[in-house]
């Protein structure tokens, strides 16, 4: 009889975790009013860069903050690649089939294999120190990571950078 109660308790916990919700997010919530918009990683779509909506993305980038990892995962990229870099961030090839004939140059593939960098953030907006250091080292992080307000000029810079994304331009060649 006791066993049945244990199983019932476990079942309730599992249902609670998965049905009611928990910290883990599998799909990005749909933005009201934008349901019909197709998501293209073109550089033009505002949701391509997580920082456009999430001001604290540099502190807690989605899919990037996996608890307190030992420092060596960060300071030694090969260990970081093995343990901490999610497989779904690998961007060796284009995601969509509509450009199947396109073969990236080796430099471009190398660029995508850098690893330990959150996706969809322009290079200029992801401080190198954050990539290589654990988030717990607050004192070593740039000002915007500490939660301070970003300079206005930075926002304007984002808007200017998007059309310059060469990868996105290649995707639009048709």
């Amino acid at each position: 009889m006791k066993i049945k109660f244990v199983w019932l308790a476990v079942l309730l916990v599992l249902v609670g975790v998965f049905a009611i919700g928990c910290y883990t997010v599998l799909m990005h919530p749909q933005v009201q009013g934008e349901e019909e918009e197709a998501i293209e990683h073109s550089g033009a779509y505002y949701r391509e860069h997580c920082t456009d909506c999430h001001g604290d993305y540099h502190s807690y980038p989605y899919g990037y903050y996996y608890g307190f990892y030992p420092d060596y995962y960060w300071s030694n990229p090969r260990w970081g690649h093995y343990y901490a870099y999610p497989w779904w961030w690998d961007r060796y090839w284009w995601d969509d089939d509509d450009d199947a004939d396109y073969v990236p140059a080796s430099e471009e593939k190398a660029e995508r294999r850098r690893g330990l960098e959150p996706p969809y953030v322009p290079d200029t907006k992801t401080p190198a120190s954050f990539i290589n250091e654990p988030a717990s080292r607050i004192e070593q992080q740039p000002a915007q990571i500490k939660g301070e307000a970003k300079p206005e000029a930075a926002k304007e810079q984002i808007k200017e950078e998007k059309p310059k994304d060469e990868k996105a331009q290649k995707r639009r060649k048709k």
Partner: peptide, 8 residues
């Protein structure tokens, strides 16, 4: 591992 936006 299932792709996640946050967590695991």
């Amino acid at each position: 591992p299932v792709p996640t936006y946050r967590g695991s």
